[in-house]
Computed example of a mutant assay.
Amino acid sequence: MNSEKENFQEKNYIKKSLYYRFSQFVGFLLGARFFVAALLTFALYVSTFFLFNQDESFSRFVFDFKVHGIIFCTVLTILAGGIINQFYDFEKDHLVKPFRTRIQSFIKQKYFLYAYLFLSMISLSVAWMISHKVFVFFIVYQFFMWFYSHKLSRILILNNLTFVSLTLYPFFGMMVYYETFSKKVLLMAIFLFLVLLCIDIVKDTLTKSVDKAFGYTTIPNYFNAKTTNGIIVSLMFITMAVSLKLILRTGISGFMAYYFVIGLLVFILCIYLIISNSRRNKFFTINILRLWVFLGIISMLLSGLEGKL
């Protein structure tokens, strides 16, 4: 009997231990925003090869270790940025993201900080081996990642502009690296900037009261609902104007042309949802726009494959 009881207790202990370790692993992935980093990595590879890289063949691109090194440093920096951001937003996330916070609670905050320092150092070490210019590029990136989490995320308008700029910073780096400056690339960058800005402001409307309680001055808790909706709708109209310019003035074709044409209807739907001023509709708007960004990456991939074949 004692032997059976001991075996049962041992098995129960192993199950709890495995559950605890698995929860720690999932908590770390969520804290580091691993899935966001994975999506950005995919977007970087697609945009680098099919948009910025106009001359290299696929085989040369595959063996361009400098580019892979830059993207690797970018991924580590994004993971580190996610960790430091959740460290500063930990109390706020208890209310806004209770499930994620509960999972993250399996890991002590000091271990997140250790991971942040480790990822940052690895990223900078690899960047230094690539070139001094790349090292400076990532020093600036990491500094603003930290400064956004520490200070800028609480400042009106700067919080939204900085967040979106940091999201697009690696793409700007690749554009400079390949010296790909054209009207089409510029308009596509503006389009993506505006879409991400809309997503961020709409997201702030869903956390308005919590942001105010924790000292985050956002557009929704500084202006009234009517003004906030007006700002979002105005940005969407500007985004539609940029889409039209891309369609009519840049000679864009293939899947990307369909993407921007259908996008006009998507933004009309989003404007309707925002005007309705329903919390549920704003949640739908965020997910529609996020899906549309992802479909934009897929469209670029398909257009690029169409052009290369």
Rank of each mutant, 00 (worst) to 15 (best):
Thr205Ile: 05
Thr218Met: 01
Gly215Gln: 06
Leu235Met: 15
Leu235Val: 10
Lys245His: 08
Ile201Arg: 06
Asp211Cys: 04
Met236Ala: 09
Gly215Leu: 02
Asp200Pro: 06
Ser243Arg: 01
Gly230Val: 02
Lys245Cys: 10
Phe237Pro: 03
Leu206Tyr: 10
Ile199Glu: 12
Ile199Asn: 13
Leu244Gly: 11
Lys208Gly: 04
Ala213Met: 13
Asp211Pro: 06
Val202Thr: 11
Phe214Asp: 15
Asp211Thr: 05
Thr205Ala: 07
Lys208Thr: 08
Ile201Ser: 08
Thr239Asp: 12
Asp204Tyr: 05
Thr207Phe: 14
Thr205Asp: 07
Tyr216His: 09
Asp200Leu: 07
Ser234Asn: 10
Lys226Glu: 13
Gly215Cys: 04
Ile219His: 01
Val210Trp: 13
Ile238Cys: 09
Lys212Thr: 08
Tyr216Gly: 02
Ile232Trp: 00
Met240Arg: 04
Ser234Phe: 12
Met240Ser: 13
Thr228Cys: 06
Val210Asp: 12
Asn221His: 01
Ala225Lys: 06
Ser209Asp: 13
Ser209Lys: 11
Met240Cys: 11
Lys203Asp: 11
Ser234Asp: 11
Ile232Arg: 04
Val242Glu: 09
Ile199Cys: 11
Ile199Thr: 14
Leu244Cys: 07
Ile238Pro: 12
Pro220Cys: 06
Lys245Trp: 05
Asp211Ser: 06
Pro220Leu: 03
Ile238Asp: 12
Met236Arg: 08
Ser209Phe: 08
Lys208Leu: 09
Ile231Ser: 08
Asp204Gln: 09
Leu206His: 08
Asn221Met: 00
Ser243Asn: 03
Tyr222Cys: 01
Val210His: 14
Thr205Gly: 05
Ile199Gly: 11
Val233Met: 05
Ala225His: 10
Asn229Asp: 10
Ala225Leu: 04
Gly230Thr: 09
Val202Gly: 11
Ala241Lys: 00
Gly230Trp: 03
Thr207Pro: 14
Asn221Ile: 00
Lys208Ala: 05
Tyr222Asn: 01
Ala225Thr: 09
Lys245Ser: 14
